[in-house]
Design a protein around this nucleic acid. Structure first.
Lengths: 332, 332
DNA sequence: TTTTCCACATCAATCGTTTGAGCAAAGCTT
DNA sequence: AAGCTTTGCTCAAACGATTGATGTGGAAAA
């Protein structure tokens, strides 16, 4: 079955091609009667304009590309979902690309976007990425770019993340309100900007509530560190500790394993709270109270921001963030 | 910065547009020297052919669409990852669409694919989908279609799933080899084809090993059923039960919660094995031994199959499946 | 010298849609 | 009735790349 074109309709109606094109677009130059006839025929032929021809003419692709380091872990699938819904609502297409967390691949994909004439790119940079030359080049080619979640701050390229400091602040404040005073905060590699923000939020709670922060309250976990052992030891030596805060799902699961191994009960022996995308907390028993950073919201907010830019609207400053919410599941 | 075209190169080299086109494509009609000059200029201008113009001419889009019910749950993100890598390797684009598990939306998306002239579609049908008219229509328009994982069997539309019966067979056989005899199998809604296949695998193990299958060994969980209570009761009344098999991650987590609540220890009091996409088993303590059905493999196998069809190769029969593997994590 | 052949390039049509410009016929004004 | 506008349409160029047909100049062959 061949797809019908304007030409086919023109032949059947006796009109010219341009006449048909205008009729279908409700151009005022065309008589009402003619329009109806044309539309009828178009329907009968199951006509759809050829997007390639349209894009060739309009010089835009109506394509948004998403570049993510991966999609098989926490969080990113939700981000994709959020982006996808907004992009479809705007009548754009979404092409999805994975950098596999490699900078070289990321650059290839950016070149690919340039070739494809994509109108916009949403990217979460790979962990190897340290400069944004490739993104700047893309911008110069007229493509709008927004960074999501894993970002390198740069005045020229807008980025959108969750409010990291606020997230950990909320979590720890909740613990304190529930009467906990001796809390250990467990953090990822402190070379990441995100870690420092979350640690700041953690400390701020103690300041605000004028509770002294013991100096072994913060546990930083670098790649390869044996958190399990360190944490077990600390819990053992310091029985006054009644609560744990973890800054990510990965750390939550590891902390949970330690607690189980020590035969401690949650929340009776030790309370547990985390920043999380909201999956793991439901798997564990009891469910883990957490600060949910919704990937979906991040995705849709980023996409919305992108369309603002595409429509020519001004955005204020490169930095944008989305709120997080507390989900109580009984681990505190 | 405007993108350069063949015309620009033609102007700079003094050649005609068609000469440039042929030079870049290493056409034998063009002198070697000329080719080199053209390529140099093309490089300097950072020339890339306009894909819309190419596709308009070649009448194909080089686009593969993936339609998934959702992407925020188990399994599907991995499927997407698997598809994505294969599609990119073939130099095609991947557009990603979500049906939100609604049949009406699914039909819209199919129309969308028709409009977009996509070359191929990989689809996991929504849970509301009961007939495949829309997919057949798409096929008639010349688009190749393959169903993944959640499928409706149909002789005209190829589909690819995991080997469900083999997966549960492997799991339960493993339990039996470890000395378990009294096993409860927990299954989803038995109106799903997948459930019956997995239940068959479960039963076959007992047949093969000539172990009697008690008639309360199978627990079917329909939407809204309170598995927690039923399972707790059964474990309580029947202390000879030493192992549990769950056919999905969702059931695994629920069973795990029951076990925790009853204060039983895994694996000492009760062993636990599941069919899983491999995420949840790592979160729980101890890690849950499982039969991993890799979404990535399903995705890449489906995409590979699609490209076989696109290249005109014959495929034998509509039904295709991928193997699963046992992952031992210490819950048995 | 004329014919033949080849290497190298150009011409022009094509893919399907959009859009400014042009044009005939009908309707309106004075 | 002559001049003007309006209505309703067609023409043709353009978007950028591809490709079959065609042309040209020179060298070799006759």
């Amino acid at each position: 079955m061949r797809r019908s074109t304007l030409k086919d309709i023109a032949k059947l109606t006796g009109l010219s091609i341009s006449g048909v094109s205008r009729a279908l677009k409700d151009h005022p130059d065309i008589a009402l009667e003619t329009k109806e006839k044309v539309k009828e025929v178009a329907n009968a032929l199951n006509y759809h304009p050829n997007p390639n021809a349209q894009f060739l003419h309009s010089k835009q692709s109506k394509i948004i590309a998403v570049i993510l380091p991966e999609v098989n872990t926490f969080f990113f699938p939700e981000v994709l979902q959020g982006i996808s819904s907004v992009v479809e609502r705007h009548g754009y297409f979404l092409i999805f690309l994975q950098s596999d967390n490699r900078f070289s691949r990321e650059k290839e994909l950016i070149d690919y976007c340039i070739q494809m004439f994509v109108d916009g790119v949403l990217i979460s940079v790979s962990s190897e990425t340290t400069d944004l030359e490739h993104l700047l080049k893309l911008q110069e080619m007229g493509t709008s770019v927004i960074q999501i979640d894993r970002v390198l701050s740069n005045d020229l390229i807008p980025y959108l993340t969750i409010d990291d400091a606020a997230a950990s602040y909320k979590a720890v404040e909740y613990l304190i309100k529930k009467g906990h005073k001796h809390i250990i905060g467990i953090f990822d590699d402190d070379r990441l900007g995100m870690t420092n923000l979350r640690a700041t939020g953690f400390k701020n709670v103690f300041d605000q509530h004028q509770i002294p922060l013991e100096n072994d309250s913060i546990l930083v976990v670098r790649e390869g560190d044996d958190v399990e052992e360190v944490l077990a030891k600390r819990l053992d030596e310091n029985p006054s500790i009644t609560a744990l805060f973890t800054m990510s799902d990965k750390l939550l699961v590891r902390a949970y394993h330690v607690i189980q191994r020590l035969n401690l009960k949650v929340p009776d022996d030790v309370a547990l709270i985390s920043i999380s995308d909201g999956k793991a907390p439901h798997y564990l028993f009891p469910g883990i109270t957490h600060i949910r950073h919704s990937g979906e919201e991040v995705g849709s907010a980023a996409a919305t921001l992108l369309f603002k830019i595409l429509s020519g609207e001004a955005i204020d400053g490169p930095f944008h963030e989305v709120e997080t919410t507390l989900v109580e599941l009984g681990s505190v």
